[in-house]
Design a protein around this nucleic acid. Structure first.
Lengths: 138, 138
DNA sequence: CATAAATCCTATAAAAACTATAGGATAAAT
DNA sequence: ATTTATCCTATAGTTTTTATAGGATTTATG
C-alpha cells in the first residue's frame, strides 16, 4: 500500500491540477478541501517543491503551483519520490535494487522472474499515466 | 514492497515445493538453506500451517510439508495472508476495502480508476501464478 | 516408559517506519 | 511596518516490522 504521505500528495496534486488557472493555491485551502492535516501537508508540499514538481510563492497572494502541465507528471515519479520502490521485491527494483539474500542465483530464481513481471505490468501503467489522468471526471 | 515475513515465506515454500517428495522438512533445514532466522521462520511456518497451506508433524522425523501440490497455491494467497492488501490504495482493495477519506466520490475519482487498473494488472499475475511457477529453473 | 526430537504457542523486546505537530525563520505584498 | 504565507528543522507519538525467548506439547523409538 502507498503511505498516507503519498496518498495525500496525490490528492493535493489533483487539487492543484484542477485549479491550475487560479495561480498559487494555499496549503490551508488544499488541507481543508481534501481533509488533510495542514502541518503534515506542509511538509509534503515542501518535498514536492524541492524535487522540482511544485513551485511556490511566499507572502500574500502566495501558495503552491505545478511546475509543469499535469500531463507531464507521471504517477510513478511521485510514488518513487515519497514512498521509494514500486517493485514488490528489492531484487527486482529498477531504482532501488538490492541483491537477494535468500536465494543463490537471481538469474534462475522463479520468484524474481514473476515479480519482474508484476513490476513491468505496474510500471506500464504508472509510468504512462499522469496527473492529467487522475483528475475528477465530470 | 513485500515484508521480510512474506519474502521469507516464499523462499521457505519454494524449498518445501522443491523437496515435496522427501516428507516433512525441518524448520532448521529451511532456515539454514535460505539464510533466515530460525525463530522468525518458525512463527511464519506456523502461520502458514494455521491457514491450511502447510501441514506439520511433531517429534523425530517431523517437520513441515505442503498441504496441496505447488500448482494449487496462488502467490496472491500468501501475500494476502501475511502482508494484507495487494492493492496500492484502501479504496481499491478487493479484500481490505476502506472508503477514501480524501475524495468526495470514488465513482468519479481518477486516482481510484488508475489504481484499480494497477490492481487488476497485478492480480492477473499473482492470482494465476502459483508456487509451481516460482521454483528454481534448472 | 523414558528420552530425545521437533513443532506449538504466547509473550515481549528491539528497531524502524510512519504520521503528525511545533515553532521560529524567511520572504513577499501592500 | 505589518500581515501573510511558505521554509526549515526538530521532535514527539504511534504503529508496524523484525526478531528473540522459553516453556508446553506431541511423537518416535530404544
Amino acid at each position: 500500500m502507498l503511505s498516507k504521505k503519498t496518498q495525500y500528495a496525490f490528492h493535493a496534486l489533483i487539487h492543484l491540477a484542477e485549479n491550475v488557472d487560479k495561480g498559487p493555491i494555499l496549503i490551508s485551502e488544499i488541507a481543508q478541501e481534501k481533509n488533510i492535516s495542514i502541518k503534515f501537508l506542509e511538509n509534503i508540499l515542501l518535498e514536492l517543491k524541492n524535487a522540482g514538481i511544485l513551485g511556490s510563492k511566499k507572502g500574500k497572494g502566495g501558495g503552491y503551483y505545478l511546475m509543469r502541465p499535469p500531463r507531464e507528471v507521471p504517477l510513478a515519479r511521485i510514488i518513487r519520490l515519497l514512498d521509494g520502490p514500486i517493485a514488490l521485491l528489492p531484487c527486482v527494483s529498477l531504482n532501488y535494487y538490492e541483491r537477494c539474500e535468500n536465494c543463490k542465483d537471481e538469474a534462475i530464481c522463479g520468484l524474481n522472474e514473476v515479480m519482474s513481471k508484476v513490476r513491468d505490468a505496474t510500471l506500464k501503467i504508472l509510468e504512462n499515466k499522469t496527473l492529467k489522468d487522475i483528475l475528477t471526471r465530470n
